[in-house]
Design a protein around this nucleic acid. Sequence first.
DNA 1: TTGACAGGCAAGTGGCGACTTGCCTACAAC
DNA 2: GTTGTAGGCAAGTCGCCACTTGCCTGTCAA
Lengths: 98, 98
Amino acid sequence: MDARPDLFRALGDATRRTILDELTDRDGQTLFEICGRLTMKHGLASSRQAISQHLAVLEQAGLVHTRRQGRYKFHHIDTSPLRSIVERWPIDREEPTP
Amino acid sequence: MDARPDLFRALGDATRRTILDELTDRDGQTLFEICGRLTMKHGLASSRQAISQHLAVLEQAGLVHTRRQGRYKFHHIDTSPLRSIVERWPIDREEPTP
DNA sequence: TTGACAGGCAAGTGGCGACTTGCCTACAAC
DNA sequence: GTTGTAGGCAAGTCGCCACTTGCCTGTCAA
């Protein structure tokens, strides 16, 4: 029935949406960087394991890609799956008054 | 932290997404029409109460507006809240090769 | 090689949300 | 009025999901 249920499940959680905000602001962060910034900037006191699981969900949805380098794992945002949303339920264009 | 959590909660359920598909195909249906078409076209055997609750969630998210007329209540889709998604996490434009 | 750091895996728990059940209100035709 | 139709309300159940807890793997510096 549904093309990619993982996408909507990933967007369904507020913490995961904040992670996407954080990666939009600064792309390519590690898990510990994201943890620190979520605590500092957004006032979220989430554990490392919780964030790790969130990142796994985001990666499964194709919204985040990872790149390993030594003992670091960098996370990169990919917003292209969001395109399927506006393609599925077209948004009426605002015609700018000429 | 989050502008409209109701929007993402509404999109989080597969049945609600199918309802949006159905309203995209034919706008302004009543509750019983939606029930019938979900059963026929999409093979969903959802009860009237379940669909009613789904429609309430969609309306709270601003994705569906209702219009009463006699004992009928017509449901209309409104995709404009979806705009906030692509505005929040901008999608890289595909430049058409000139 | 030992310690510290970055991350992973898996079982268990608690709360929220989808769905049911049962009864009620409103409008219309007869 | 009575009957049938369209929809609403509220309590209860059940399963999934976010989060925790505990331990393990891999990498780098000393």
